[in-house]
Simulated assay, not measured.
Amino acid sequence: MKVLVLAIDRDDDFGIKAGVKGPVIGKGKCIDAALKLSLADPEDSDANVVYAAVKLYDELKKSGEFEDVEVALITGHPDVGVKSDIELGRQLDIVLKKFPADGVIPVTDGAEDEQVFPILSSRLPIVSSKRVVVKQNETIETTYYVIYRYIKEILSDPEASRVFLGIPGLIFLLYGVGKLISVSYPQSMSIISNIVVGIILLFIGGYAFTKGFRIQVFRALTNEFIQVIFGVSGLLIIIAGMINAYVNIDAYARQLLGYVPQPGPIKFIFYIHAINTTIIIGIAVVLVGRIVQAYLRKDTHIWYNIAGLLILPTFWIIIDVTTRYALGVINFHSFGTILEILGAFVDVIFSVIISTFIRRYLISWGSGGSGGVEGSSEEIRVSESRA
């Protein structure tokens, strides 16, 4: 087995500082290149990588474990990334033409150079690897690389820069404006501070909410206007119903229970019972909006929302029966309760049957009814071939 001991300089320190052009093949040439870099910059660890590669080359030669061994150095490009990796791949191909190895042992000085391992493995197997750590601790160098990489990503990625730079920048901007205004109007500092804090919390909360639920506000307003309108309407219905139930809960309690329960589990269960209808109506409005939007887009997944709309009465019955049973208003032996439970079962069966038929119809509708045409054309082609 022929093995190549390969020293890697991804950012081309050899070329920039010592004028050494890669690839460098052979023990003597590699030592000369390392000496040039050591004289140009004694603190550069890339020279020690080459020394370590030569040492490993000598050890493998003496052991006789492999049929043949060679040592080489490849250099990349100062613009670390695509350019450097392309250059490393080009130089590696040159080395392999002169020394057709069956395996490679890469020698690096840190995590950054190890990013080229996929390039090596795409051309020949990696037998082993060696990392050279000089003076500084390995963990420190790796940590430095990770921090550097993430800072670079934050600065270059628009999405990350909005979060890590945009939001803190907005906070400092608002506080700066507030401080400047308070210089001329010191008596209004409390009001200004509350306004600034409110705007900051509103912005951060809105951003976190939209990101957490994968809501793209501007895209939704332009592409899903109907769904947004119905969604906001359903949300307002739910909020209005919750407020109304909270304000009139005592009157509802006297009407249903004959007394007003003390704050606790009973009153909480009664509140759930009071907002049951409003929540179901609000969800129904949201689903209607999704159905209309999907219909206009001719989306075959519309049947999911139709199935959800059809099964909503079941959820209303479940909440109504369980809350009233918990309040002691009904029992499961009464005729009315049995009818409600049977109604829930009937609604589930009805929803499944209707949804199945709707799904079959919508798949054909979404494809424009092309399935039958394709099938008939295939039959015609078969019959012609037989003829």
Score class of each variant (00 low, 15 high):
42 P>N: 04
42 P>I: 01
43 E>C: 05
43 E>L: 06
44 D>Y: 09
45 S>G: 09
45 S>Y: 05
46 D>S: 12
47 A>L: 08
49 V>E: 05
49 V>W: 09
49 V>L: 06
52 A>C: 04
52 A>R: 09
53 A>M: 06
54 V>G: 12
54 V>T: 04
55 K>L: 11
56 L>E: 10
56 L>G: 04
59 E>A: 14
59 E>Y: 09
60 L>K: 07
60 L>I: 06
61 K>C: 10
61 K>H: 05
62 K>T: 13
62 K>W: 04
62 K>V: 06
65 E>W: 07
67 E>V: 10
67 E>T: 10
68 D>Y: 00
69 V>T: 03
70 E>C: 04
72 A>E: 05
73 L>Q: 02
76 G>E: 12
77 H>F: 01
77 H>Y: 05
78 P>L: 02
78 P>W: 07
79 D>I: 04
79 D>V: 13
80 V>W: 01
81 G>N: 03
82 V>I: 12
82 V>L: 12
83 K>Y: 13
84 S>P: 07
84 S>D: 14
86 I>V: 10
86 I>M: 13
86 I>E: 15
86 I>D: 14
87 E>W: 06
87 E>A: 13
88 L>V: 11
89 G>E: 12
89 G>W: 05
90 R>A: 14
90 R>Y: 13
91 Q>P: 04
92 L>M: 13
93 D>V: 05
94 I>Y: 05
95 V>I: 06
96 L>G: 04
97 K>Y: 02
99 F>N: 05
99 F>W: 09
100 P>N: 01
100 P>V: 09
103 G>S: 00
105 I>M: 11
105 I>F: 08
106 P>Q: 05
107 V>A: 02
108 T>F: 02
108 T>C: 07
108 T>M: 08
108 T>A: 11
109 D>G: 01
110 G>H: 01
111 A>E: 15
111 A>G: 06
112 E>A: 03
113 D>R: 00
113 D>T: 07
114 E>I: 09
114 E>L: 05
115 Q>H: 09
116 V>G: 00
116 V>H: 00
116 V>N: 02
116 V>M: 06
117 F>H: 07
117 F>I: 14
118 P>G: 03
119 I>V: 15
120 L>M: 10
123 R>T: 08
125 P>R: 07
126 I>F: 10
127 V>R: 14
128 S>D: 15
129 S>M: 10
130 K>Y: 15
130 K>W: 08
132 V>T: 09
134 V>S: 14
134 V>T: 15
135 K>A: 06
136 Q>S: 15
137 N>F: 10
138 E>N: 10
139 T>R: 14
140 I>W: 07
140 I>M: 14
140 I>E: 15
144 Y>L: 11
146 V>C: 08
146 V>K: 10
147 I>E: 09
148 Y>Q: 13
149 R>Q: 14
150 Y>C: 01
150 Y>G: 00
152 K>G: 15
152 K>V: 02
152 K>R: 12
153 E>H: 09
153 E>P: 05
155 L>C: 00
155 L>H: 03
156 S>T: 14
158 P>C: 04
159 E>N: 08
160 A>I: 05
160 A>M: 13
162 R>F: 12
162 R>Q: 01
162 R>G: 09
162 R>V: 02
165 L>I: 15
167 I>K: 07
167 I>V: 14
168 P>N: 00
169 G>F: 14
169 G>C: 03
169 G>N: 11
170 L>A: 13
171 I>Y: 01
172 F>M: 11
173 L>V: 09
173 L>P: 10
173 L>H: 06
174 L>D: 08
